[in-house]
C-alpha cells in the first residue's frame, strides 16, 4: 500500500512539473517579449535591451525555464507584464481572501452534500431521494452566474439584506466580513454540492447492493449494525475521495464566482490578467490553481488507496 501511495505522490509531482512546462511554453508562444511589452511602444531600443539583459531574457529558452522554475522554488513569481509590480506581492494580498472564501464554502458544502447523498441513499426511491435527484439535476446543469444573479436580485436588491458586491475592507468587523461573504459562499455551495451528493448516493447505493449486505440481513443483524459495520467501512474510500474532489471543484468554481461579486481574490486577478493578456500573472495564478487541483485529486486517490481493505491488509 505504501508503495502505491508513494507512486501516486510521484505522479502528482510529475504532473505539477509538466504543468509548469506547459505554462512556460504558453508564455513562449506570446508574440513579442517581456521587455518590449513592459516598457511599451515609447521605449528606446537601448532601454529595452538593458531590461532584457537585466532579466536574463537573452538566455536560451531552456535556461530561462530553469531560472523561472528556480525562482518559483524560492517564492519569486516574477514581475507583472502590465505594471511591472512583483507578482508575489500582488497575489499575497488576494490569496488570503480566496482561501477564506474557499474554506467557508467547503465547510458548508461538504457536510451538506454528504448529508443529502446519504439521506437519498438510505431512503432510496422515497420522496427524499426524488427531491435530492431533482435538486441535483437542476443545480449540476446551472451556471454559477444564474444563481448568483437570482440571489442578488432577491436577497440584495429586493430584500436589501446583503450587499451585492463582496469586497471586504480593512477595519470591517468579523460579522461584517461574513455578511459580505454570504452570497459568494452560497453560490459556490449550490453549484458544488450536487456533484458530491450524487456521487455519495451512488457509492452508498453500490455498497448496499453488495452481496455481503444481503448476507448481513440474512444473519439477522439489526439495521444499525449493518450500516455501521458492513456499509460504512466500505463507503469510506469512495466518499472520502469525493469529498476531496469537491474541494477541487470549489477551487475552479471560485474563478467565476469571484468575478461575479468583484471579490478581490486570485480568481478575479487571473480573469483580469487574461483580459489584459498579462501572461506572467496568468502563469503564476494558473500554476497555483493547477497545483492545488492536482494536489487535491492526488489526495483523493491516496485516500481511496488507504481505505481499500484489500490493499490495506496486503502488507
Amino acid at each position: 500500500m505504501g508503495r502505491l501511495i508513494l507512486r501516486r505522490g510521484g505522479t502528482g509531482g510529475l504532473l505539477v512539473l509538466a504543468s509548469t512546462l506547459l505554462l512556460f511554453l504558453a508564455g513562449e508562444m506570446m508574440p513579442g517579449d517581456f521587455a518590449s511589452k513592459l516598457l511599451g511602444a515609447s521605449a528606446t531600443p537601448e532601454t529595452v535591451e538593458a531590461l532584457r539583459l537585466s532579466r536574463g531574457l537573452d538566455a536560451s529558452p531552456a535556461a530561462r525555464y530553469l531560472a523561472w522554475l528556480g525562482g518559483l522554488l524560492h517564492g519569486d513569481l516574477g514581475l507583472s507584464l502590465t505594471n511591472g509590480r512583483e507578482i508575489g506581492a500582488l497575489i499575497a494580498s488576494r490569496l488570503g481572501n480566496t482561501l477564506l472564501l474557499a474554506g467557508l464554502a467547503a465547510a458548508v458544502a461538504v457536510p451538506l452534500a454528504l448529508a443529502l447523498g446519504t439521506l437519498a441513499a438510505v431512503f432510496r426511491d422515497s420522496w427524499i431521494d426524488r427531491a435530492v435527484l431533482v435538486l441535483t439535476m437542476v443545480t449540476v446543469a446551472t451556471p454559477e452566474f444564474f444563481f448568483a444573479y437570482v440571489a442578488i436580485a432577491v436577497l440584495a436588491v429586493e430584500l436589501n439584506w446583503l450587499p451585492s458586491i463582496s469586497i471586504p475592507r480593512p477595519g470591517m468587523s468579523v460579522w461584517e466580513v461574513l455578511q459580505v461573504l454570504v452570497l459568494p459562499v452560497l453560490t459556490l455551495v449550490v453549484t458544488s454540492t450536487a456533484h458530491v451528493a450524487r456521487m455519495t448516493r451512488a457509492s452508498i447505493v453500490a455498497a448496499m447492493e453488495q452481496d455481503y449486505v444481503g448476507t448481513a440481513m440474512l444473519k439477522g443483524l439489526p439495521r444499525g449494525r449493518i450500516v455501521l459495520r458492513h456499509i460504512l467501512p466500505n463507503v469510506a474510500a469512495p466518499v472520502s475521495a469525493v469529498v476531496v474532489m469537491t474541494l477541487a471543484d470549489i477551487v475552479v468554481g471560485l474563478i467565476i464566482v469571484e468575478t461575479i461579486f468583484a471579490y478581490p481574490g486570485m480568481g478575479q486577478l487571473m480573469v483580469d490578467s487574461v483580459a489584459k493578456r498579462d501572461i506572467t500573472v496568468v502563469q503564476a495564478c494558473g500554476l497555483i490553481f493547477a497545483a492545488t487541483y492536482i494536489f487535491l485529486n492526488m489526495a483523493a486517490d491516496m485516500l481511496a488507496i488507504a481505505f481499500n481493505p484489500r490493499l490495506r491488509s496486503a502488507r
Binding site: 453488495q210 452481496d211 455481503y212 448476507t215 459495520r229 458492513h230 467501512p233 466500505n234 481493505p309
Partner: peptide, 8 residues
C-alpha cells in the same frame, strides 16, 4: 467470496 465483507 461476494458474501463476505471485504473490510472485516
Amino acid at each position: 467470496a461476494a458474501a463476505f465483507n471485504p473490510a472485516q
